[in-house]
Design a binder for these strands. Structure first.
Lengths: 195, 195
DNA sequence: GTCTATAGAAAGATAGAC
DNA sequence: GTCTATCTTTCTATAGAC
């Protein structure tokens, strides 16, 4: 897809990020070259440096945008008041959102170690903020006596790992619909925490 | 650690694999060079090719050895007869074994995509064989009426993801002992499957 | 804004001396 | 069995033309 000289900064920038996300998710950050990304977009390698300071900054931008998205999505979610309702909302929202953003989710837990320490710390803080949303629900339920959890932090980690694991095997063409998967996981989570 | 000429094939081979495992786990397969591995062992890069055909084969050997280890370890585990006892044994064994082999576990789910298709298929088959061990327990419990699971395959994936997640946050110096973590996870798993 | 060209470093892998 | 030396390729990033 050769391209001639011209001005396309408004569309090329997003296309660079989209191509990078796709390739990083498929082959891994370290295994993807700037030339590959450029070829995918249809520009020369040198042109990429108009849109990113370097390769690591490109990865950081993707992870940062994703984490902003994760947090904003959960903020916007309609939520009940009772801890059990809030937990159900979290479980269903997490699965639905993660499957809709499979590449970004995959990147955000596979490629963290390729960030600079400063960038790593910023993404890690956002990840922790998201986990804290779930832990707050579990603690509220614990105090209300509807959940029976010896350790809400551990339960938080266990539930998130379980939910994010869906991304490793779920396929749209698979045996079970997304709604069915949500239902089954919610059943398991509910039973695992309930008093 | 400079080394002089001499014959050390019996000890250098294992040292090469140990160094590769450590570096691959820390920085990622694609980000580690053969020169780095050689420096870690104390030999020159060229000498590595006495112990592996190429870099990918080195990764495959590590993953293969780990999966053999996983399957042998589960075979050797003393197990009860009742599905609930067998499930408890699986949960505790999985956590204990995974924490004892943290680097190998990490590699085996982070670096699969760097294998050739043929090598990938072999590791994938072993991983599936391990998952089948858990699914057999869940199916037996389901048929005996002690478990209530709408889908044993999904429950298998959910439980394994939850258990393997321990590796992402557990530290020996942390707040909870390994035995305590095992206990809490087993409580959650038990409740999530029980009728 | 994108191109061509290239600097400069580093990679995987091999050859041949010892 | 290990070393030094090197071939060949590929990489990130930059310079300067258009």
């Amino acid at each position: 897809m050769a391209r001639k000289t011209g001005s396309h900064s408004d569309i090329t920038g997003p296309r660079v990020r989209a191509a990078a996300q796709r390739l990083f998710a498929r082959d891994g950050f370290a295994a993807v070259s700037m030339r590959q990304i450029a070829a995918e977009v249809g520009v020369q390698a040198g042109a990429l440096y108009l849109y990113t300071r370097d390769k690591e900054a490109l990865l950081f931008d993707l992870l940062k945008a994703h984490m902003d998205d994760v947090l904003a999505h959960w903020e916007a979610e309609p939520k009940g008041c009772a801890p059990l309702d809030r937990l159900e909302a979290f479980v269903r929202s997490h699965i639905r959102f993660s499957l809709a953003r499979a590449e970004a989710v995959f990147l955000s837990y596979m490629e963290l170690r390729n960030l600079t320490p400063a960038h790593f710390a910023r993404i890690e803080a956002q990840r922790r903020a998201y986990e804290d949303q779930l832990e707050a629900i579990l603690r509220a339920g614990q105090e209300a006596g509807v959940f029976a959890l010896p350790d809400t932090k551990l339960a938080t980690m266990a539930i998130i790992a379980m939910l994010t694991g869906v991304n490793t095997w779920y396929r749209d063409s698979g045996r079970l619909s997304q709604g069915r998967v949500e239902q089954i996981y919610w059943d398991m989570v509910r039973r695992s925490v309930q008093a």
